[in-house]
Structures are given as C-alpha cells and as structure tokens.
Design a binder for these strands. Structure first.
Lengths: 224, 224
DNA sequence: TAATATATGATAGTATTGCTATTATATTTG
DNA sequence: CAAATATAATAGCAATACTATCATATATTA
C-alpha cells in the first residue's frame, strides 16, 4: 500500500470534530499520541489534560479539535473502519469470482494488521489493538441512536454492507447476510481480545487462525 | 422455572463484593434498583449517590456492599451468566443425543429472555437488556488480566466451556469449538443490540430469528 | 511594514464524580 | 437491658470534564 496511496485521505464526518485534526501539525500529533496513550493506559484513564502534557501542548488546545474524548474515540474508530474499507475495496475490486472476492474480504478484515506507511502519523498496528479494546465503548452508550442519526457510524455500516453484499453474491438465498457480516467483523475483534486475555475461550492462537475459523464458518454456511 | 428453584442461589465469587447483597434487604434493593437504573441511564451516568437516593438510602451504605460501580457490574454480569448456566444445565442435562443437546443449549442462550419468578428481586428481562448494553465494559478494562486471575470471570468461562464441549460432542474433529461457543454467546448479545440500534446490520428482527441464525451457523459448520 | 486575523498556550474556575472518614442513630442479638 | 451491628448523615478531598478569559506567537494581507 506504499506510494499508491500517498494522496488518500480517510474522510470523516465533519460533525465528529471541531477542527479537522488533519489540517494542522498539532491536530496530527493529537491523533498520533492519543492512539498510543489510549492503548497504554486504557480509555477510562485517558484524559485531554494528560494528552496535552504528552504532546507538549495544552488541554485547552486539544478541546479546540475535539469536544470530548468520546468524540475523539469516534474519530479514531471511524478512521480505522475507513482505512479497512479502503483496503477491502482496493483488494477485492478487481476480483469477479464471488467466492474469491468474499474470501479476500474475510482475509482483509480478520487478519492481524501490519504497519501501513501510507499515513505517517498513524500507527495502524497500535490503532488496531486500541480498536479491539475500546471500539465497543464508542456505541455502547445512551447517545447511540442520536449519534447514529448524525451519521457518526456510516463508515462502519457501509463496511458491513459491502461484506453483506459479497455474501449474498455467493449465495442469494442465504437469509442472514447482514448478521453474518456483523459477526465476522465484531467476532474477529473479539477473537483477538480472547487470544490476549481469555485464552481458554478461543482456538485462534496462531497467526491466521482467526481467518481460517471465519472462512470455515462462512463457507460452510453458504451454498453455491 | 417456578417452584423448583425456590432455594437456588447463584454463587458469586466473594471477592466481588464487600458484603453479600443477598444477605440483607438493603443489599437486595441495591441489586434490584441498580439493574433498573443502569438500564435507564446507562452505566456511565449511574452513580452510587444516585442509587442511594433512589432506594431511599445513602451513598455510604452502598459502599458497604460494593467497592465501586465496576465491581457491582461484575456482580450483575456474574449473576446473569450463573443464572443462564443454571437454565442451560437444567434444560440439557437429561438430553443424551448430542445434536439435540447442543440445539437446546443454543436455544437457551440465544432466545429472548422471559421473566423468571424464581428470584423475586431481580428482573431478568431488564437485566438481560442491561447485559446487552453494558456487559463488554466489565472486561474491556486495563484490569482484566488481574481480575481474571482473581476469578471474577469463572462463571462466564465455565458457561462457554460447557457449550464448547457440547460442540465437540457433535463433531470431535471440529477445530474451533471454543471460538464458536464464544461467537454464539457474544454474537447473540450483539445481534440483539443491532436489532435495537443498527437495524440494517442484522437480519434478526423477529423473535426467534437470532436462534435460527445461530442454529444454522453452527450446524452447517459441524459434521456428524 | 504595519495591521489584523488566527492558532496556540497559560491560568483560573466550576460542577460532578468517586471515593474516605467520622459521627450519629437505628435495629438486632445475646 | 447492654452490646454489637447495620445504616444514615455529613463533611471533605483529589481528579475529571469541562468553560472562560487573556496572553502570546505566527501567518496573512492591505
């Protein structure tokens, strides 16, 4: 994904931020460091004050980019899903065979993340781990319906829908394409979490096993 | 489940509470009302001060039962999984045919919850909804490994293991029994969440459809 | 180059949260 | 009835999640 994507920018719903963090150096450092800090200390302990100190800036300056840390989490997750979506479309676009296409999609979505040098200030490996630990907290809130209406989850929904469509292309008669697509994405994050914290609850211990598990799950369920 | 279970008590790891809430009237009201309040206002907005006011008691009195609201959440989730485990064992114990047994287990675990009058102070219907919204927050923390060592998640792990074993009984050669069991439990909660908040991401809109989805998913994946 | 707009930094202040500690008052039990 | 125990009331404290104001640095443009 190196040189090809130099000019690609993941488009995030403008209501999520006050000022676009991509528009300044400080903004980029906010994104860069918040990913690392949330990974290190967990979302609960993370504060804008601590972030300000870490980036050699000020709490009040961070507030000029994001209203609160929940919005920052929404930004990070949206960016992640946008980035995954890009990789998915890029890798599957040229494939015409439905089974092959879905296989590729599942691989992209369930495989461990490797560093991507296209977006220099974002560490995708750490972001992926942060997403595994914190993603659910972005929607397990009382505000989820209001925020959904505002379009804060469009990228995620679009990604699930793309996979859902690929599933239906393999088997038009399958009754649960959206549920299955959701299970793949959410379930894959969960398998990685289990691997790190509840080893006895998963069988996906080696690299690539989560992918094998989901490929088997999906293709035995689909006809055709 | 009426009369039969009158004397059954769900056994919770004693380290989770300071004083057993089952041991007093105040304790039971703490459990009863906290379920309703967390459901109504969400875990983030819920505080012991508010709970004290609601039950006509005092913040300091609540602290005599639970160190903090995280521990209370651990208690509620442990209770829920213990209750589900009981229902599962009760319903599947007499079944010898492996497929039938697993089918029953999946039904128990994925079906919408009906009121159970066995535990008068606990509203299982609301508790189930609270678990759907808040369960992940009990383990998506920086303390998860330490708390796991303390045994705070034993009931959940035992429940997953029971299902995992039932899966292996149907198909000894299946390589991912634990992953699949985890997917069923976690995935089922997620499908219910999607049904309430992201309808386009699930196909399980009617009662019983989640069960059908998982039954299909599981039995197409297993041989024998 | 001066005037002005814009971004950032520093400091202060406020309500709420998440507790701990102390003391007072019920209630139960011996 | 005394003693133990449970609960209630109040105070207090450090941290969080902001908001507001003012100062200063940097960039733009007239």
């Amino acid at each position: 994904m190196e040189r090809l994507l130099q000019s690609v920018k993941i488009a995030i719903n403008e209501k999520i931020y006050v000022k676009d963090p991509e528009s300044s150096d400080l903004g980029k450092r906010i994104i860069e460091e918040s990913i690392l800090m949330i990974y290190d200390m967990g979302f609960e302990s993370f504060t804008f004050k601590k972030l300000g100190i870490k980036i050699g800036s000020n709490e009040s300056s961070v507030y000029r980019y994001f209203e609160n840390k929940h919005k920052l989490l929404l930004y990070l997750t949206s960016w992640y899903w946008g980035w995954l979506e890009y990789k998915l479309v890029f890798a599957t676009n040229s494939i015409t065979n439905p089974k092959e296409k879905l296989t590729k999609a599942i691989e992209i979505v369930t495989k461990a993340i490797a560093q991507d040098s296209s977006f220099s200030h974002i560490n995708e490996v750490i972001l992926n781990k942060t997403i595994i630990n914190e993603y659910s907290k972005s929607y397990l809130t009382k505000e989820v319906d209001a925020e959904n209406k505002e379009g804060y989850f469009v990228i995620y929904k679009r990604l699930i829908n793309r996979i859902s469509e690929m599933i239906s292309f393999v088997d038009v008669d399958y009754k649960y394409p959206s549920s299955l697509a959701s299970t793949i994405l959410e379930g894959s994050l969960h398998q990685y979490f289990l691997r790190d914290h509840f080893i006895s609850l998963t069988d996906c211990h080696q690299d690539g096993e989560a992918t094998q598990y989901f490929l088997h799950l999906v293709f035995t369920s689909l006809k055709g």
